[in-house]
Design a protein around this nucleic acid. Sequence first.
DNA 1: CCTATAGCCTGACGGC
DNA 2: TGCCGTCAGGCTATAG
Length: 265
Amino acid sequence: MPELPDVEIFKRYVARTSLNKRVESVTVRNAKILGKVSTKALGATVKGRRFRAVRRHGKYLFINLDNSKWLTMHFGMSGSLHYFKSVDEAPEFDRLIFTFSDGYHLGYYSVRLLGRVDLVDNATQFIMSKNLGEDALDPKLTSKTFEELLSSAKGTVKSFLMDQTVIGGIGNIYSDEILFQARLHPKRKVSGLDRNTMDRIYGKMRGVLMKAIECGADSDRLPRSYLIPHRQKGDHCPRCGGPITQIKIGGRSSYICTQCQGMHE
DNA sequence: CCTATAGCCTGACGGC
DNA sequence: TGCCGTCAGGCTATAG
């Protein structure tokens, strides 16, 4: 689930539950979810420290410790966070558990082990080193900047929206939603888009992501007019009633309404 | 340099 | 019921 809206909800969750708490211990149940940092080094650096601040950039979550180091979290395809009182409540797939001095815990959940937790000196430097683009909801990403990015890009609109080195935070699900609302076929090439269309994509991008956050990144709470609640074979377009069809782009599934989303505007 | 494709992992689900 | 193939909201390394 973790695209920008989901990670934003995780960020608020950490802020609400775990901020300013002192870490008593760190339990690594499966070291595969660790990046460069070792279990030992993680424990040594985090133990005794407090969670001072939490930030998000694209699909990454950053937790600032009171020794100025940063925890980085990426959730892969199946990650989330859980806060709980008794360790008996820890879900089976919580691969990493922080225990705070008040006895509560924060668990990093990752069924498929595709997510990563790491430790870095500087979050901004980390973002630079990963070559991540501007966060999709950052005010610095204006419609003008967006147009410039779009104008210098190649390939399809879908790959443009999902390219984390161009814009951070949009994945397979939300790119489908944005293109559905902008009435564009995901295989539409970015070259030759007129200014109106570019602005429409930009507006839908912001609108969809903000709405999703407002709904707690819970697909059940999204408006019925959204594609996401209908994103399955055999379902119907909430706008025109036409069939929702699945197509493959670069090995991944895209869901579209062929009646609403033509190749040409 | 770039775009396109396997590979990483495990669990859920549908078809036989 | 049980097995097997396929698929799942992502990223990275590697091939061409």
